[in-house]
Nucleic acid binder design. Structure first.
Length: 215
DNA sequence: GAGTCGCT
DNA sequence: TAGG
């Protein structure tokens, strides 16, 4: 019954192609904020927001939580894990609504049905950013990345396969979903510093949810 | 030898 | 914004 939760969220057109294999589904989940936030909160209750340290020793401005396979960054580099190595317990499962969202967004973007195994959540407070980087620590580059924006708006940067490639700037609002894969799966991307503001549902934050196949 | 989701 |  979750199959068509999002398909008719808005009539077309929402598609904006920003590169070969990269699509913005504007407003795709605009009407599902409360349920999505509830899913985020249920995960955060089990995996509290944390600021990861980059291999270079710097604290990331973005706070992270996750479910499914989790992501770690430390002085040894980046990696995914299926469980919390400190407790030995698996990370919480990905909520059904997020699995449904990922599947429907991937279908809409032309990638076909999708079963991700990792869901990373980023909380951007005003001033938080994520500079240009690649998602390349996953095992399956055949699977797309599905990225959901909630709360405060932000400017998404979407570049090419080379770090120096000129990045396109794409404004993202609450409810937008970006899907990239295929030829652009390894493209550099990032988020410019989030401006202060207040969203009636989310408060003074931007929350980003990404779904991927990591292991 | 890369790195390099941050920094200058 | 390019790049060590």
């Amino acid at each position: 019954m979750t199959m068509d939760l999002f398909e008719d969220a808005l009539p077309p057109p929402w598609h904006e192609q920003i590169a070969p294999g990269a699509v913005v589904l504007h407003g795709f989940v605009r009407d599902h904020g409360p349920e999505l936030l509830a899913a985020v909160n249920s995960v955060v209750a089990q995996v509290p927001w944390r600021h990861m340290i980059t291999p270079g020793g710097y604290r990331m401005s973005v706070a992270m939580s996750w479910c499914g396979n989790g992501w770690t960054s430390d002085n040894r580099g980046y990696r995914y894990s299926d469980r919390d190595t400190r407790t030995g317990k698996p990370w919480p499962p990905i909520p059904e609504i997020l699995m449904a969202l990922a599947d429907e967004a991937a279908v809409q973007a032309g990638f076909g049905h999708y079963v991700p195994d990792s869901c990373l959540m980023n909380r951007y407070d005003p001033g938080s950013k994520l500079s240009l980087h690649q998602d390349k620590d996953e095992n399956d580059f055949g699977a797309p990345i599905v990225s959901v924006s909630l709360g405060l708006p932000a400017v998404f940067q979407f570049g090419g396969l080379q770090r120096g490639d000129r990045a396109r700037r794409v404004p993202l609002a609450h409810g937008d979903v970006v899907v990239w894969g295929g030829p652009s799966r390894l493209n550099y991307h990032g988020i410019l510093p989030v401006k202060e503001g207040y969203h009636s549902l989310v408060g003074p934050h931007r929350i980003n949810i990404t779904l991927r196949k990591a292991l």
